[in-house]
Amino acid sequence: MFSTILFYVLSVILVFSSLMVVFTKKPVNSVLFLIVSFFAISGHYILLNAQFLAVVNIIVYAGAIMVLFLFTIMLLNLNKETEPKKPVLIKIIAVITGCLLAITLIGSLKGIDNAPVQNFSDNSIGLIKNLGKSLFTDFVVPFELTSVLFLASIVGTLMIGKKE
């Protein structure tokens, strides 16, 4: 009962703040609403008993990436006046592509009711011990490949940054 109420409260916050990210005019407010939505997502993770994911989501997204977003916006000092004016043609194209994306999404979500729902009887799957075990046994190849990918992107960033 209590967790159902929490679920709905978090969902309302999440949907509202995600919408506001798109609709608000000032870039700084967009970033702040995005941070709020990350916290709501972390709340959902906690409801699913995945505390590790919840905390890592806050550390990585809210604590590091969004700080950099905010940092960039503050440095560039983006305002409504400095926003470039877009021609009407581009706006029309944007609307059409947006509608196409919506149709694709609806099409792909149409058959979702028939898909079997995975029901985990064991709700400790999100705890750090089980997560670590499955990462290093069942998913060790994708995990290591992702690490190599990260390393490559770090080296790439350094290369680009050093150029000047």
Binding site: Q51, V55, I59, G63
Partner: peptide, 19 residues
């Protein structure tokens, strides 16, 4: 069971007030 990560998370969010 992730107490120490919680502390890291809260300190990482702590910069927003100043920013």
């Amino acid at each position: 069971n992730i107490g120490i990560l919680y502390i890291v998370a809260v300190t990482s969010v702590g910069v927003y007030g100043i920013m």
